[in-house]
Amino acid sequence: MRRPDWAPDEIDIERPSVARMYDYYLGGSHNFAVDRAAAQAMVAAVPEAPLMAQANRAFLRRAVHFLADAGVRQFLDIGSGIPTVGNVHEIVQQVAPDSRVVYVDTDPVAVAHSQEILADNDQATVIQEDLRHPDRILRHPELRRLLNLNEPTAVLIVAVLHFVPDDDRPAELLRTLYDALTPGSWLVLSQASDEGRAETERSDAEMVYQRTGSPLWFRNRSELTTLFDGFELVEPGVVWVPQWRPETPESSVNAETSGFLGGVGRIGD
């Protein structure tokens, strides 16, 4: 179907969205044919891609539980995507109903969808902004409305940092966030790593994501650890995500196939 001339270009559902591809990996149906085609191409290149997404999502769940148990009541989830099953506000508001969650995503459809889900939840909100502009996120009125950054806050940047190449200075972005946080605040990071991957697998995966407009930028363990600068990593440090405080010993077997490294750090008092 031809799109009318007056339709603005920026709503491009003919281009795969990494947020909706991720939803597809997780078994959701919040995606369009174009997203599924790209996700299937990814699965053809890296068959365990859905398992990687699931492992990463499980890491997020365990990390958020951990933080809620540690008493954190404010969460800033940057790169939240399509918040379908097991999203942050559901997890934390089960533990502590007064917890506040601010979601941030750059994908306008993901944001519109989040707005719909959060319409009746005055303890959670969503901002359309890019991780590359932490200053804009921090001064956004919606964030200011829900979060008091003078109190401990957890910043979650889960499965999104691999869309931020070094040219975009991720260390500076994290520094800006760090500077806005008070001691006792937390940082949760996870991102794709090509450690131990075959070169062909890596380049095929890169090709798939090149078409989404969000190319992949892999990082290894030491690179990710460096990005925790200013935060004290809690045990077990930066590891393959299934190894991060697993619920059962067997769930961390073959952890490196998850392809995701992650960790949790805290600003000391």
């Binding site: 709503i11 959701g28 149906s29 919040h30 379908t84 519109a112 969808h113 707005q115 719909e116």
Partner: peptide, 16 residues
């Protein structure tokens, strides 16, 4: 879910 994501896309489109 399909309906909800389409609604989101439409909402976004009219917003844009």
């Amino acid at each position: 879910e399909q309906e909800s994501i389409r609604r989101a896309a439409m909402a976004q489109r009219s917003k844009a």
